[in-house]
Design a protein around this nucleic acid. Structure first.
Length: 744
RNA sequence: GGGCACUUAGCUCAGCUGGUUAGAGCGCACGAUUCACAUUCGUGAAGUCGGGGGUUCAAAUCCCUCAGUGCCCACCA
């Protein structure tokens, strides 16, 4: 054996051996144990967060050694919005944008992009030693997933759980899609608050540029100052001349804010939208999906929102309508979580799922702990969120995703379908579908270059059919795609085959990052209960962010991002894995530093050298030892022999209990302490002085081999490496550690 | 504004349902070492357990309160 453990010399080879032996496949015997891998983005490369999948691997290896028929099913996610965003950045480098492509081409290009960039993450997972059954890998755009997702949608549509509605959504004019509330990030900003003259009132607003879309003005019902105006139509002087709005009284207005008067712009503010709905105000859209003011804004048409605001403010001042400007107004603004631009609340048609009924059983299984959360506090977080969860907007206006299987019927006399498409010369065109057809453009041309279809909702909505294929001549497809979580939410049902449901559902363990608790965990429980009347898994273990040595969250802007693969190169996979676990409480941040990983590399080396020492001792004294394979010299054991055996038994116990409770650090620390400070520092030092070497060696061999098993789930490579180096000292020299029996 | 955590050695953190000298990893100081390992070994310094109050024979551990930090949610015209 070499003097020091060189991970580079062993890791690759050992992994090949495992994989080639079929060790990652479920055994034919034993109870089923199933773990699903949270699918990383298909085109992603490994980041520190992924390294935490180590926890899943520990559980899987542990159960496999315990004799369960264990399988860890991996997969990748198409990650709709995330991926399209990355792709568009690539496009921008070539001076192009998504607007240069029809939808079909854009999808195909992204598909190719993803294919070209996928595979890397699995390679990296393998470098970390993950023992998943790679041949079972599922991609969320695989045929079987698509079929399942469409089937689900059709069932929900049939049962009235799906509806279309005009709804105010957060729209990112840069990314070209609406976002669910969950995807919105809020940021505290200081912006000017404008006090303007507004008919008989004065009022405060941060968005004077939306004034063109005002259809009402609101006061608090109990605000005596304004009671006499309620219900009246008032005339307001505006930049485009005078206009009339109705005064409404609504509880939502805070009489203490500003002057206690609010202008109501239902098309461009979520609260105003709600208020408008309550009082029957009309919705007047003045900002388009391109982020520019539209034809209803006169000379301001075509200006981007920020520029429009500037000009409107100037003109209000000139017109004497501006009273004062508070420059230090603090409020939070909604930002796109991806591009960090300010979102534009916008009214547009969306597909929704009614969650009231669907979430009830979810709340039940969380409350009575059929699904258990580790650490426990996430149960509360989950319940809190489930209770306020409202209808889920599942449509996204991006090309990269699972298409919504719906077709709209174009009626000759109806203007309820609006389309954007690239014509024969690749020029972007838009207009009302029925009118375009009347003007002689064939439907086939629109379909060919189709970018987007926007169909009205409510009474004006066109008839539609739910179908995968075009149901008739005069139809245009829905161009929206499903929210990524709509497909990944069905993960347990698509990774397992239907024949396996009975045996492997619920699955046993789900370890994932806490920040997708609401996006993903909740939806999986919901879909599994709705579609199969079964919970998707019994135990959910949430891990937290991987942070730097100081406990600060890693981020590119702070420059403290650690690349796990570099650490693996430097110190070995075992060292990184152990560093992720050691000294980390469940649910807390995981501080990662070179020093820590280095320390664990030293531990790996210690393990190696203990093996080396034992081998050398057996070479020197082995001939005299009746060491019939892993047996102890029971009748001649010394007191210190009994002691170390007792300590081993205790360690087995602590490791088991730690793993059972998902207290991985407890388990890891116990085995670390035992191997290094009990076995190496104390017992082995005594062995050197023993006269009855044959007895001591039988003990050291037994204890060491057993301890290697305990350590294997945490540090699989080095343990497997020494295990194989000292094969002649073992009873079954050909047996691999990965499939050996867990000590009891 | 509502909720959930956290505040213990220089740093990052363990200390479960209260009970003998409060622990680990890293770091630090001093020393050792041809005999498995310098990716080593030994010895050691270092904490009034965020502040205040309470319960108890006994509190880092339970309760109240104050302060700070982090996270989740809601909302901000």
């Amino acid at each position: 054996m070499d003097k020091a453990y060189d991970h580079k010399k062993h890791e690759r080879e050992i992994y090949k051996k495992w994989e080639g032996s079929g060790a990652f496949k479920p055994g034919k015997e034993g109870k089923q144990f199933t773990v699903l891998m949270p699918p990383p983005n298909a085109n992603a490369s490994l980041h520190a967060g992924h390294a935490m999948y180590t926890i899943d691997d520990i559980v899987v290896r542990w159960k496999r050694m315990q004799g369960f028929s264990t399988v860890w099913i991996p997969g990748t996610d198409h990650a709709g919005f995330e991926t399209q965003y990355v792709y568009e950045k690539e496009l921008a480098k070539q001076g192009k944008s998504r607007m240069d492509f029809d939808r079909k081409t854009l999808y195909e290009n992204i598909y190719k992009f993803v294919k070209d960039n996928s595979g890397l993450i699995y390679k990296q997972f393998k470098q970390l030693g993950f023992s998943a059954d790679w041949e079972r890998s599922v991609f969320t755009l695989d045929e079987k997933v698509l079929n399942r997702v469409w089937k689900t949608f059709m069932q929900m549509e049939k049962e009235g759980k799906v509806y279309r509605d005009e709804y105010i959504v957060n729209y990112c004019t840069h990314c070209g899609t609406s976002l669910a509330e969950l995807e919105v990030v809020h940021e505290e900003r200081t912006d000017p608050l404008y006090y303007i003259k507004y008919g008989p009132f004065e009022l405060a607003t941060v968005r004077p540029e939306t004034k063109f879309g005002d259809t009402g003005v609101a006061v608090h019902p109990k605000d005596k100052r304004y009671t006499k105006f309620v219900g009246q139509e008032i005339e307001v002087e505006g930049l485009l001349g005078k206009f009339k709005v109705r005064v409404i009284a609504d509880e939502m207005v805070d009489p203490d804010f500003g002057t206690g008067v609010v202008k109501v712009t239902p098309a461009h503010d979520p609260n105003d939208f709600e208020m408008g709905k309550r009082h029957g105000l009309s919705v007047k859209q003045v900002i388009g999906i391109d982020g520019r003011l539209n034809e209803l804004t006169g000379r301001f048409q075509g200006l981007k929102v920020a520029e429009a605001k500037k000009q409107v403010v100037e003109e209000l001042q000139k017109a004497g309508l501006m009273i004062e400007i508070d420059e230090n107004y603090k409020h939070s603004v909604a930002l796109c979580y991806k591009c960090r631009r300010v979102l534009e609340p916008m009214v547009m048609p969306n597909w929704f799922i009614r969650v009231d009924e669907l979430k009830k059983p979810v709340i039940k299984v969380v409350e009575n702990e059929e699904v258990k959360f580790f650490p426990k506090r996430f149960k509360k977080q989950m319940l809190q969120w489930l209770k306020i969860m409202h209808d889920w907007p599942i449509s996204r206006q991006i090309a990269w995703g699972v298409k919504i299987p719906v077709w709209y019927e174009i009626e000759p006399e109806n203007d309820n379908i609006y389309v954007w498409w690239l014509d024969k010369n690749s020029q972007l065109q838009q207009g009302v579908a029925s009118e375009i057809l009347k003007r002689g453009t064939p439907l086939s041309e629109i379909e060919e270059g189709l970018q987007r279809v926007k169909a009205k909702t409510g009474e004006a909505a066109p008839k539609y059919k739910v179908a995968l294929d075009k149901p008739g001549e005069n139809y245009l497809p829905e161009t929206d795609t499903f929210d990524t979580w709509f497909s990944s939410g069905q993960w347990p049902l698509v990774t397992l085959s239907e024949e396996e449901y009975a045996a492997r559902l619920p699955t046993d363990f789900m370890g994932t990052l806490e920040d997708i608790l609401k996006f993903w965990i909740s939806r999986m429980i919901m879909f599994s209960l709705y579609l199969q009347k079964v919970i998707p898994y019994r135990d959910v273990y949430l891990w937290s962010m991987v942070a730097d040595a100081k406990g600060v969250k890693m981020s590119k802007s702070k420059g403290n991002v650690v690349n796990p693969i570099e650490l693996v190169d430097k110190f070995g996979a075992d060292a990184l894995r152990m560093a992720m676990i050691f000294g980390v409480a469940p649910g807390s941040k995981i501080p990662l530093s070179d020093e820590k990983v280095k320390g664990m590399r030293n531990f790996a080396n210690k393990i190696w050298n203990m093996g080396r020492f034992i081998e050398l001792m057996f070479e020197a004294y082995g001939k005299e030892v009746e060491f019939y394979k892993e047996e102890l010299f029971r009748p001649r054991l010394a007191l210190e022999d009994m002691e170390i055996i007792k300590k081993l038994t205790k360690t087995v116990d602590v490791v088991n209990r730690g793993l059972e409770k998902y207290r991985f650090a407890d388990a890891a620390e116990a085995i670390y302490e035992f191997l290094w400070h009990q076995l190496a520092d104390v017992y082995i030092e005594k062995v050197k002085k023993r006269e009855d070497k044959e007895v001591a060696l039988s003990v050291v061999r037994h204890v060491y081999l057993t301890a290697l098993k305990l350590l294997h789930p945490f540090m699989p490579f080095v343990t497997e490496a020494v295990w194989s180096e000292i094969k002649d000292l073992r009873k079954y020299p050909d047996q691999m550690l990965i499939t050996s029996r867990w000590p009891v």
